[in-house]
């Protein structure tokens, strides 16, 4: 009797805990979750682990381990830069979804959007998110620029990062504008007609600029293909490079500016 009391059969809970501990202690587990991960065995909230969380994550290590105290105040940054990046990620994800259902030709484009909205599960929702997200990104990038200006954050040593920021704003507008044409409806066609007519007045090279942009003398299927490639591949590629430099420079220039 006494023996039974000393070694009772392990309960289900105890067994689960034991298996859990075994898995967490295994080589495979530890090879996946680097030190500082909350999934590691014996994780505790210590200054050391707080540092590891940042250092050992490919995404979080965009950040330094520690930031100035005023930098975490929402009232200082309004999160505008971070949100611009986040909306860009949302747009990439929703954009990839849209690419599955879209052919950039004059004969198919509008029909494909129509089909996407009416026959594809969540098609309408994802297209709405992509469109409204694009407008939000233009807004957040623009407001981010205003915020940075009013904080005098473009001053040394951050002059060049401001220049990169202006490039990013321009690229954001171009991304939004190239995407504007893709639904190939009346709104897209004539908005882009107005926009590209304006660019045709570039001094000296006006007609050449317009020809390169349109892939012809008038807007047509060639324009659609050209802007599609710009929108889904080339401009995102370029903007990601500039974003990488932008984020890197934020850290190299001593983190966020201020306090005022």
């Amino acid at each position: 009797m006494a023996k039974v009391l000393d070694n009772p059969r392990p309960t289900l809970k105890e067994r689960a805990a034991k298996i859990g501990a075994q898995i967490q202690g295994s080589q495979a587990w530890n090879s996946i979750f680097r030190p500082g991960s909350i999934f590691r065995k014996g994780y505790t909230d210590s200054p050391r682990n707080r540092s590891y969380v940042i250092m050992n994550s490919v995404l979080y290590h965009l950040h330094p381990v520690k930031v100035k105290r005023h930098a975490v105040k929402v009232s200082y940054t309004l999160c505008l830069g971070g949100l611009s990046f986040f909306v860009f990620i949302l747009l990439t994800v929703t954009g990839i979804f849209l690419m599955f259902f879209y052919r950039p030709t004059g004969a198919n484009a509008w029909e494909d959007i129509q089909t996407l909205q009416t026959s594809v599960t969540f098609g309408l929702l994802i297209r709405n998110m992509h469109r409204w997200g694009a407008h939000i990104m233009v807004l957040t990038v623009f407001l981010h620029m205003a915020r940075v200006f009013y904080h005098g954050a473009y001053k040394p040593p951050r002059e060049f990062n401001w220049v990169i920021g202006v490039v990013l704003l321009t690229l954001t507008l171009l991304l939004s504008f190239t995407g504007y044409l893709l639904p190939w409806d009346q709104l897209a066609l004539w908005a882009v007609t107005v926009g590209t007519n304006m660019m045709g007045y570039t001094p000296v090279f006006g007609s050449q600029v317009r020809f390169v942009l349109l892939g012809g003398v008038e807007i047509g299927s060639e324009t659609l293909l050209r802007w599609y490639v710009l929108h889904v591949l080339m401009l995102p590629f370029v903007i990601v490079i500039f974003m990488a430099i932008h984020f890197w420079r934020v850290r190299k220039d001593g983190g966020i500016s201020g306090p005022l």
Binding site: G106, W110, E111, I113, Q114, Q117, L124, L125, R127, N128, M129, H130, R131, W132, P183, W184, D185, Q186, L187, A188, L189
Partner: peptide, 12 residues
């Protein structure tokens, strides 16, 4: 996006 639909006018 759930409430407001993006515009899609007549085909170009």
């Amino acid at each position: 996006s759930w409430v407001v639909n993006a515009p899609l006018l007549q085909a170009a």
